[in-house]
Design a protein around this nucleic acid. Structure first.
Lengths: 332, 332
DNA sequence: GGTCCGGATTGAAGCGCTTCAAGCGCCCGG
DNA sequence: CCGGGCGCTTGAAGCGCTTCAATCCGGACC
């Protein structure tokens, strides 16, 4: 910067003003400085800047699994909202590894980013103690298990499960199956919603729960195989899958291996509005959790924390998922 | 750090040594300092650190489109390799927007990261001038259009196209179609390889090229519809798609709308080994470009540049793609 | 007892920027 | 003609760390 100042024949402070408060600098001076900057190819040192000013223009977003398009949507939403305020979002992919997630949270804390977004698997509260102790703006996304002291954006999974089941019931389905792993809080909540809808049917509808080890396509195929092995009268006519990939595998197994018709024989609802669901041969009815919207809201909360949030600011936002009917339930 | 020093009863320099050269510090002193660090919840300021030392422990990776699993694989590979050397990788998603790509490159330059990885759409050479002028370590991935002055990791798209076409020809296919956009250099090269394979067949095989506007699923569906509209004898018996999503859409159109059999009536080869290809009802034969390996190699080159690369270091690595046969060509 | 040596520790000088009180001209009103 | 005010610009004091020459101290050796 000294070189720029010398070239332009001004002082250090003026160069700094051109960069940060151009309005304070006289037109002609500013032009001279800008010319010098261009000539010398000067790019200001962000480390020095944030050390000196105590602020940074970047948010860090730690994502547990970027290969899941739901999380990528969040990142996209965060990016949109942030860039509207002149902020940048840097992503860290934990790749389903809790240790990596921890490493990256530490990294962002060290780098003194302006704020941190975290989309964990679940139970992330413990990971954020240090961040919060430092007073670093933080918002946790999609983790129902954190306490009220943490800012969060969530979706109402119980409601989503309820919508999914009601959709099937309204289509006349009476023998429902819910498939999904038991160890994910969000999936348990979806199941809860399904249960409620079934209860509300007043005994007209039956519900069975099938456990899966995870939410991958293979897990879904296995459920499909299991159902195919049953006698026809023992098969469900409607399935709520705890996640889209599960639904995708299930449908593939049913349709390709088993020659069952979807939705005629079995209607299937997924969850997540994952990109994989769009690209399925039989497009999958699903619950959209508005990942982009979550990212946007979370970033708004981060920005609010930066300007010293209003005392009455709500620390937790819950978005409502909505059903997207596609061929896997309503045919075409 | 001053607080830590005071609490532990040592000087600033010693605390710094505990952090950076623990071997230089006596066992007992080190323990005292570490205790103080724990007690005070001290986390060192990365901005100050990199300002002072002139180095940073993070690489920046600008990716043109993280929703493409090929790029995400690169990121994963880069992460692996970097963490082996105590480095971190921060991701920036340009989301197919060249302006954003530029913004993020500038950001990483400002932040003085230890090195930059760039996986652009194409023609990224111009974007990197400033970075290179600064002497910042840089590796460009998957862009055949950059010059020899830029370090790159690429894959041999001509070879890949050749493999794809030869595979079809060996399976007895004689009327080939290549589908893909004309404005992507990598796709043009794949076509070139296909052409070569056809030429080598000595006239036994015909080749037709169908242009698509992009490489999305919809583009593939449209190609499928076009083929279905033709009289049967005018349809190809083998298709090389310029990308997996294209192949996915094509197959969906052919199989679901047109009641053609894949691979019996038409065999289809994709390109990329995109996750979407795994999850297709008819798993798609594809060319794997070893995204993770590319990320790993690129990071190795970055690390080499950091230690002052050997003068004879090769600035460009080209990896060979390999064919993964699946049901869309060989049935099951 | 005196010297020398080497490992452990210290303290001050930056790293490149932002910030802000102070200074400099210049113009306006009285 | 003078004082005051205003718009620009300046220069120095940090920001929190790393680095390295200088210092300290205890033991080995003569």
């Amino acid at each position: 910067m000294i070189d720029v100042a010398r070239t332009a024949g001004v002082s250090l402070g003026t160069v700094s003003n051109v960069l940060n408060n151009p309005a304070k600098v006289a037109e002609t001076t500013r032009r001279r400085v800008e010319a010098a900057i261009g000539e010398l190819g000067f790019v200001r040192n962000g480390a020095a800047r944030s050390l000196s000013s105590g602020t940074s223009s970047t948010f860090g977003f730690v994502v547990i699994d970027l290969s899941n398009s739901f999380f990528l949507d969040m990142a996209r939403g965060a990016e949109q909202e942030a860039s509207g305020s002149g902020m940048n979002v840097l992503l860290a992919n934990a790749d389903l590894d809790d240790a990596k997630q921890h490493t990256y949270l530490d990294l962002f804390e060290e780098e003194r980013v302006a704020g941190v977004l975290l989309a964990p698997q679940q139970n992330a509260a413990g990971e954020t103690t240090s961040l919060r102790a430092r007073g670093m703006p933080l918002v946790v996304l999609n983790d129902p298990s954190v306490g009220p002291e943490v800012w969060t954006v969530q979706t109402d999974n119980v409601h989503g499960g309820h919508l999914a089941a009601r959709h099937l019931i309204e289509l006349g389905r009476r023998r429902l199956v819910f498939a999904g792993p038991d160890d994910l809080a969000v999936v348990r909540q979806r199941f809860e919603g399904v249960e409620r809808a079934v209860r509300e049917s007043g005994g007209a509808v039956t519900l069975e729960r099938i456990q899966t080890p995870g939410v991958r396509v293979e897990d879904g195929r296995r459920v499909g195989d299991e159902l195919l092995a049953r006698p026809a009268h023992d098969r469900p006519d409607g399935v709520v899958a705890g996640a889209d990939l599960l639904a995708l595998g299930l449908i593939q197994s049913l349709v390709v291996d088993g020659r069952l018709r979807v939705p005629e024989d079995v209607a299937v609802v997924g969850y997540d509005n994952n990109r994989a669901a769009w690209n399925s041969v039989i497009p999958i009815t699903t619950l959209d959790q508005a990942g982009e919207e979550m990212g946007r809201r979370a970033t708004q909360m981060l920005l609010a924390q930066l300007d010293g949030s209003p005392a009455d600011g709500r620390r937790s936002v819950t978005l409502e998922p909505f059903l997207i009917p596609r061929e896997s339930t309503v045919g075409r």
